[in-house]
């Protein structure tokens, strides 16, 4: 099979039949010019992602937030679960006690729940898994317990902060990303079919968010979302480490 740019491009996206994927893998291994070409095409994607994902770090204009605001979220039995999880966090994870301190205002702030829910897929392509920005974060979620800070290749740092189960019985982790521009985001990712998918991102330290911040400095959007998402179990350090060892299978 002649390996054209089109084939390589589709290889990059894991969009070829497995037999062709395998053949290209074999040729990459034996032919430096093909692996160099693949690297060039991969760099294009990296550049695009690197540059245009930056808008994630800019607060959403309030005009857009207002367009999408719903009427205040009805409080239901989540309230009971809320107090439960905060107690658990307080007891088991000292480094997370700041979240427990934010409890009081959460219910009132539920109306501001314009969470930036983003179903993102970790690409299936092997190279994207090695190189992708999200893939690196997903790898940290997969292997590092909460409270431990890890650095990404671009100098950004990631710290998982909390692990819990959502109402769909998925294991989810809240984590903080500090990028090299000094922007901080709190994120939530859930594990499905063996892969981590980011489901929400919240920005802090910016004016748009500050107006709603609680006294302890956390984003109320984050807390309100956690209140809705945390269904039952909060994992303490020991349980997290055990899950990591078991590759998150129960």
């Amino acid at each position: 099979m002649k390996i054209t740019d089109e084939k390589l491009s589709a290889f990059l996206d894991a969009e070829l039949p497995e037999a062709e994927m395998e053949e290209i893998r074999a040729q990459i291994a034996s032919d430096d010019s093909i692996s160099a070409r693949l690297a060039e095409l991969t760099m294009v994607d990296e550049s695009i992602r690197g540059v245009y994902s930056e808008i994630d770090n800019k607060p959403l204009p309030s005009a857009i937030r207002k367009m999408l605001e719903e009427s205040p979220v009805q409080q239901n039995n989540n309230v009971v679960q809320m107090s439960g999880w905060k107690k658990a966090v307080h007891k088991t994870n000292a480094f997370l006690s700041q979240h427990a301190a934010q409890a009081a205002s959460v219910a009132l702030l539920a109306g501001f729940l314009v969470a930036q829910i983003m179903p993102q897929n970790v690409s299936d392509s092997p190279l994207a898994q090695q190189n992708g920005y999200w893939a690196q974060q997903a790898n940290i979620l997969e292997t590092v317990p909460s409270g431990q800070t890890e650095t990404l290749y671009d100098g950004s740092s990631v710290q998982a902060r909390l692990t819990f189960k959502d109402p769909k019985n998925r294991i989810c982790r809240q984590f903080q990303l500090n990028n090299t521009n000094g922007m901080t985001s709190e994120n939530i990712a859930c594990r499905e079919q063996g892969e981590w998918h980011k489901v929400a991102t919240f920005y802090s330290g910016q004016n748009d968010i500050n107006e709603y911040q609680t006294a302890s400095g956390g984003s109320p959007l984050l807390n309100a979302t956690l209140d809705k998402m945390i269904h039952s179990q909060i994992y303490d350090r020991q349980a997290e480490e055990q899950m990591i060892q078991q590759n998150w299978s129960e």
Partner: peptide, 30 residues
């Protein structure tokens, strides 16, 4: 609104990639 809210981050990055300007991207998103 809830369904659209879920799409906002994706649409916003897409708009940024199309326009090349964060301000234009937010106009286009809006």
């Amino acid at each position: 609104k809830q369904q659209i809210t879920k799409l906002v981050p994706q649409l916003r990055r897409f708009a940024f990639a199309l326009t090349g300007s964060a301000d234009d991207a937010d106009d286009l998103l809006q």
